[in-house]
C-alpha cells in the first residue's frame, strides 16, 4: 500500500552494534544539544522591567471613537456585529432626542454596546466593517479579571474619554489613502 506521507519509516529489527549498545555516544550527543541551548539568544524578556515592543497596529482592546466635537460616532448600524466571526458584539439602538445633538453624531446611536472580550478573537473585522470610523482596536491590552462577567465590556469601558487630552490616537491604524481622503472636504463624510 502506498503511504499517505513520506514520513513513515520501515521498522527493522536489526541488532545494535557495540557503540550503540553502550549508549555513551548517544548520551554525549544529547548533552551537546542541551548545553548548546545555554548559549542561544533568549526568547523571553523580564516582563515588568523590560517590555516587548508592540506594532503600531497591534490589535488589542477596542475603543469607540468620538469625533472632533466630542460626539459619539457609532450609529449602531450593526455591521461590526454581523462581521464579527466570534459573535462577540451586541448592541441596542436608540433615537437621539432633541437637545442631544452635542452627544451623538447621527439621529440614531447605540444606547447599549457590548463586546464580550472572552469571545473576541481580535481579528479587526469590526474595525474594517465600520462605515463611521467609530470602532478601532488599540495596542492596549484587556486586563485580567477574577470573574467572567467582568469581561463583557459596555460603553463605559469602550467609549473614549471626552477630554481632548485623553483621546486615543488611531491615526497610525489608518492607511495613507484613508488619511488623504479625510482631508478632502468635498465629501460629506468629512464635513
Amino acid at each position: 500500500m502506498k503511504s499517505l506521507t513520506n514520513r513513515s519509516r520501515v521498522v527493522s529489527n536489526k541488532q545494535m552494534n557495540f557503540w550503540e549498545r553502550i549508549y555513551f555516544p548517544a548520551i554525549l550527543n544529547g548533552m551537546r544539544i542541551t548545553f548548546g541551548h545555554l548559549f542561544r539568544k533568549k526568547t523571553t524578556v523580564q516582563y515588568p522591567e523590560v517590555k516587548r515592543e508592540y506594532s503600531d497596529i497591534y490589535r488589542g482592546k477596542h475603543v469607540l471613537k468620538r469625533d472632533e466635537e466630542g460626539r459619539e460616532r457609532c450609529t449602531a448600524c450593526g455591521l461590526c456585529a454581523v462581521a464579527c466571526p466570534a459573535e462577540a458584539i451586541t448592541m441596542v439602538a436608540a433615537e437621539r432626542k432633541p437637545g442631544e445633538e452635542h452627544l451623538y453624531r447621527e439621529e440614531k446611536y447605540a444606547i447599549v454596546y457590548e463586546i464580550n472580550m472572552l469571545r473576541c478573537i481580535f481579528c479587526g473585522d469590526c474595525e474594517e466593517a465600520c462605515p463611521k470610523e467609530a470602532i478601532f482596536l488599540t495596542p492596549e491590552l484587556v486586563k485580567s479579571e477574577y470573574s467572567r462577567d467582568k469581561f463583557t465590556y459596555g460603553k463605559d469601558e469602550l467609549v473614549e474619554p471626552l477630554d481632548p487630552a485623553k483621546r486615543i490616537d488611531v491615526s497610525k491604524r489608518q492607511t495613507a489613502e484613508v488619511l488623504e481622503f479625510k482631508k478632502n472636504k468635498k465629501y460629506k463624510h468629512n464635513k
Binding site: A76, C77, G78, A81, V82, A93, E95
Partner: peptide, 9 residues
C-alpha cells in the same frame, strides 16, 4: 420598528 433592530439580526 424604528431603530429597534437591524433586519439581519
Amino acid at each position: 420598528f424604528r431603530f429597534k433592530s437591524r433586519v439581519w439580526f
